[in-house]
Simulated scan of single mutants.
Amino acid sequence: MSTPTPPQPNFPPPLPPEPPKPAKSRTNLVIMGSAAAAIAAIVITGVAVANSDGSDEADATPAPTITVTETAEMTDQEILDKSMEILESAEADVDAGIEPDVTIPAVEETEEEPEGPLTSIDEGTYLVGEDVKAGSYKTSGPSDGMCYWARNKDDSGELKAIIANDILKGPGRVTLNKGEIFETNGCDTWQLAE
């Protein structure tokens, strides 16, 4: 009698083996290293040829100083010390016959605002003749809501100090005299009338 064969499990077929990965070539590293060495040799030879004038003596001209700057918070004393160090180094270079290569930037001349009283008035309180020029000023009216102005004898804020005042709903004009206090609130800029 024959023995029955047990049922075989249904496994998927095995995957083919992965092809072997190529070994990292040391040849590339050797080539790169040789190329770097060759470049360095060319640079060194070029510098030596550039510095030679037919004699075996080295060129005595000092090489330029390279300064690396780093941003850091310094105390006033550290800034003074560093400044003195730079000045002493510059003096030593000059004493050694090295001319400093210094470029002084051009100073741009800017137009300064004219001294004296203003000829246009924005919101605030002004002394006529000192803060603003005396004369006749005009405005286009309220900038937002209502436009209030007042000419005052002084800046006490008392009612008896008011010479004249008004609330404008449209354009307005006022003449300011030297020594008065002019107050404006909510008005477009007042301009001196020509």
Score class of each variant (00 low, 15 high):
residue 93 D to G: 09
residue 131 D to T: 08
residue 159 L to D: 13
residue 82 K to E: 15
residue 163 I to P: 06
residue 147 C to A: 07
residue 153 K to D: 13
residue 44 I to V: 15
residue 170 G to Y: 07
residue 179 G to Q: 05
residue 68 V to I: 14
residue 177 N to M: 03
residue 64 P to A: 12
residue 178 K to G: 05
residue 133 K to Q: 15
residue 83 S to A: 14
residue 7 P to K: 08
residue 34 S to C: 14
residue 137 Y to W: 04
residue 81 D to A: 13
residue 70 E to M: 08
residue 28 N to P: 00
residue 152 N to E: 14
residue 54 G to F: 10
residue 161 A to H: 03
residue 65 T to V: 15
residue 62 P to D: 07
residue 163 I to A: 04
residue 71 T to K: 12
residue 112 E to A: 14
residue 83 S to C: 03
residue 69 T to S: 09
residue 87 L to F: 11
residue 74 M to D: 01
residue 160 K to G: 08
residue 131 D to W: 06
residue 75 T to G: 12
residue 92 A to K: 14
residue 13 P to S: 12
residue 182 F to H: 01
residue 116 G to W: 04
residue 189 T to I: 14
residue 3 T to G: 10
residue 40 A to D: 01
residue 12 P to F: 09
residue 162 I to G: 02
residue 162 I to A: 08
residue 136 S to G: 02
residue 72 A to R: 15
residue 44 I to T: 13
residue 115 E to L: 12
residue 161 A to M: 09
residue 81 D to S: 05
residue 152 N to H: 06
residue 110 T to V: 15
residue 185 N to T: 07
residue 57 E to C: 03
residue 58 A to V: 14
residue 11 F to S: 04
residue 32 M to L: 13
residue 31 I to P: 01
residue 62 P to R: 07
residue 79 I to H: 06
residue 57 E to D: 12
residue 100 P to M: 11
residue 32 M to S: 10
residue 135 G to Y: 03
residue 138 K to T: 15
residue 83 S to F: 05
residue 129 G to D: 04
residue 14 P to I: 11
residue 138 K to D: 07
residue 151 R to G: 02
residue 185 N to K: 12
residue 76 D to S: 10
residue 192 L to K: 01
residue 104 I to V: 15
residue 130 E to M: 07
residue 38 A to V: 13
residue 160 K to T: 15
residue 6 P to G: 03
residue 126 Y to I: 06
residue 147 C to T: 05
residue 93 D to I: 04
residue 123 E to P: 02
residue 179 G to N: 08
residue 130 E to Y: 05
residue 186 G to F: 02
residue 36 A to G: 14
residue 125 T to A: 12
residue 66 I to W: 02
residue 48 A to F: 09
residue 9 P to H: 09
residue 158 E to A: 14
residue 49 V to M: 10
residue 26 R to W: 10
residue 147 C to N: 06
residue 192 L to I: 00
residue 101 D to H: 05
residue 146 M to L: 10
residue 177 N to R: 03
residue 102 V to S: 06
residue 53 D to G: 13
residue 156 S to Y: 10
residue 112 E to W: 02
residue 127 L to V: 14
residue 15 L to P: 10
residue 169 K to P: 01
residue 110 T to R: 11
residue 47 V to M: 10
residue 1 M to A: 12
residue 164 A to G: 00
residue 131 D to E: 08
residue 163 I to W: 04
residue 175 T to R: 06
residue 155 D to L: 04
residue 133 K to D: 04
residue 66 I to P: 00
residue 146 M to F: 13
residue 168 L to C: 05
residue 179 G to R: 01
